[in-house]
Computed example of a mutant assay.
Amino acid sequence: MATRIVTLPGDGIGPEILAPAVALLERFVPDVKVEEHVFGGASIDAHGTALTDSTLAACQSADAVLLAAVGGPKWDTTDPDQPRPEQGLLGLRKGLGLYANLRPVRPLPALYDASPLRREIIEGTDLLVVRELTGGIYFGEKSRSATSATDVCTYSVHEIERIARVGFGAARSKVASVDKANVLETSRLWRETVKRVHAEEFPHIELEHVLVDNAAMQLVSAPRRFDVILTENLFGDILSDEAAMLTGSIGMLPSASIGDTDAPGPHPGLFEPVHGSAPDIAGQGIANPLAMFLSVALLLRHGLTLESEALALESAVDKALDQGLRTRDLGGTASTAEATEAVLAALG
């Protein structure tokens, strides 16, 4: 039976980086069947909504979903009654039951000098941000009047327990649970629940609690101290983008969003680069496709359990960079096509 992957090109540079990524995927999974659907701003233009019912249904029945990028100034609005591309992403996560976002951050030796941080600070960094995806302020009740607005931050014990298990399960030795327990009641529940899950199920893993402002500071002053950063939705969104600068460019950071694989039925994960749609360079053929390629590697690993294939693709990206590949965001001149050719050549 063929492996079925739904692809969502999205907006801006999305289609440009997705096409070569699909070619790489087909190289590793010869029987793959790729089904493309409109999503994000492009879907708003075509259907008036960022995520149609038919696109969601296709994603729900797939083996995995590969997303490029969404958004752009064309659809930027503060009117709560107008659709936004990001609503499609939130709806997709909810519709697929995706509650854990995994963002590995591993600066490559070839790019140490591309980071705005000094080499001696980032050298040897290898961390994973585990971000909760379905709770928190993004999904809480919202209100708006002429003079005020509210966004309710809500977390349940169940939501915290399951993301804590993902974080502890991914850790080599240590989990830094990031919260704001000195101020927020949701963070106090978070801290209490993480403590209990640790004591009952993962006592062999070291656990520390770090306030989010301290974590943000340490992430750029001593990133090597982190193994797994476990945190809630809003904090994870901000910290993972901050962590991208350790790699030299947000164009180098992939991500995987996963759900409950133990429950019956298909459980497709969502795999996407962390960067946005970069509308300012769309159509010029100069976008960095490497985060997209590394997202394919995460799809191979977490979506299709093809670990050796994932390692081969990651090694090819490393090798291409070691041999001098640099896209414009990394201080070079390589086009999207030239970056793709370099990675294919490194695969041999």
Rank of each mutant, 00 (worst) to 15 (best):
P266Q: 11
M245D: 01
A222I: 05
V274I: 15
H267T: 13
L234I: 05
H275I: 14
P289W: 04
M292G: 07
L219C: 10
G276C: 14
G276M: 14
I258P: 06
G283Q: 09
T247M: 12
P266G: 03
V220K: 12
L294W: 08
G236P: 08
F235A: 08
D260K: 07
D241S: 02
S240M: 10
N288E: 07
G265V: 10
P254Q: 10
G265M: 04
M252Q: 03
Q284E: 15
L239H: 01
H267F: 12
S255F: 11
P279W: 08
F293R: 02
G248V: 05
G251M: 02
A287H: 06
I281K: 14
I229C: 05
A216F: 07
F293W: 06
L239M: 13
Q284P: 14
I258V: 15
S295W: 13
L290R: 12
L290K: 10
D262E: 11
P223L: 00
D237S: 02
G285Q: 13
A263G: 01
G283V: 08
N288F: 05
D241C: 05
G276Q: 12
L234D: 00
A216C: 14
L219W: 04
P223Q: 00
N288M: 11
A282H: 09
V220W: 10
N288Y: 08
P279Q: 09
G276W: 08
Q284R: 15
G248S: 08
M292I: 14
L253E: 00
A287G: 09
S257V: 10
L294N: 13
P273I: 10
L290Y: 05
D280Q: 15
F271G: 01
G248F: 04
